[in-house]
Design a protein around this nucleic acid. Structure first.
Length: 291
DNA sequence: CACTTGACCTGTCCGC
DNA sequence: TGCGGACAGGTCAAGT
């Protein structure tokens, strides 16, 4: 799924595409992934105008004029794809290599929103781990995830010192597991964990309580650099990730270790290896990143 | 408690 | 080209 840079890319795309539009119709396949009742939909979604699109960690919020919001988690394979009415605005048209989606709805479509101008927003999710739910905007901060999620790593005010202190909540786990823990820092997933650990020359199995202040400062800088670059490149597309226009992101063209096992380390030329850490496929340079 | 491991799903790729 | 198993951007609940 989409990690912070991918979700932020979707947020930016949706902001320019759907703010001001009025929801005319909604359909979804099963209750799993969209738990609201028909009454809720009629009362708080149909006829509502979209007022804002926000992000916190990997969660998207589409705010409505009814003071309700659609809260969305894309998990591993979720997509939010906008489809306009004019043929030249259709995703994929003229850019077949950028597109990972065909005509919509398709087999993976879970929710369809239709706006009054005839445009549509599709929530697709091959693996069905993702969800979308309608809830009062003011209640969003009370949901469990929002209560425990850590700070946004790209915020200006987020310092290297705070970064290190957050990790000290998990002293006896390895650094990769801690990076993936959303209560430590928000928005880091498997790709940017591996990329930033390579940048900081840290082995993913290093225990948090063995990492020096200097090493944390490096990791802080690398994580922010890699995530800022990924936002600039529109995120990473390995399999299913696409932005709001159905197009792929290009960060994978810049990846240094992620999914590059067997290829040379761009820093020292040693062959990149793949191992399993914290239950996830993990990519390292065995020379640059030693235990 | 802190930490790790399975489960949730579908699709694809790799080895026999 | 058939079939089993491992694996895939994430997070919870249930284990130790």
């Amino acid at each position: 799924m989409p990690e912070l840079p991918e979700v932020e890319t979707v947020r930016r795309g949706l902001s320019s595409l759907i703010i001001g539009k009025v929801v005319q119709a909604e359909t979804h396949d099963t209750e799993k992934g969209f738990p609201n009742t028909k009454d809720d939909v009629r009362q708080f979604l149909l006829g509502a105008t979209i007022t804002d699109v926000r992000r916190r960690a990997k969660v998207l919020m589409i705010d409505l004029s009814t003071e309700y919001s659609l809260v969305i988690h894309l998990k591993m394979t979720g997509q939010l794809v906008f489809v306009g009415t004019a043929p030249e605005n259709r995703f994929g048209a003229g850019h077949p290599n950028d597109s990972l989606v065909g005509e919509l709805p398709d087999k993976s479509t879970r929710v369809t929103l239709t706006f009054t101008d005839g445009t549509k927003l599709f929530f697709n999710d091959q693996r069905k781990f993702g969800w979308m739910r309608l809830m009062p905007t003011v209640e969003i901060p009370n949901i469990d995830f929002m209560q425990k999620v850590g700070p946004e790593p790209l915020n200006e005010a987020f310092t290297a010192k705070e970064f290190m202190q957050r990790f000290q909540r998990r002293p006896k786990t390895n650094i990769k597991a801690a990076l993936l823990d959303q209560s430590v820092v928000a928005g880091v997933g498997n790709i940017y964990a591996d990329e930033s650990l390579w940048g900081a020359k840290l082995h993913p199995q290093r225990l948090v309580n063995t990492i020096t202040e200097q090493e944390f400062t490096m990791l802080y800088k690398e994580l922010r650099d890699v995530m800022n670059l990924a936002v600039e490149k529109g995120g990473s597309s390995n399999h299913t990730y696409v932005n709001a226009e159905g197009k792929k992101g290009s960060y994978m063209d810049f990846a240094r270790v992620f999914r590059r096992e067997g290829l040379p380390c761009p820093r020292c030329g040693t062959t990149i290896e793949k191992l399993r850490v914290a239950g996830r496929g993990t990519h390292i340079c065995p020379y640059c990143q030693q235990l």
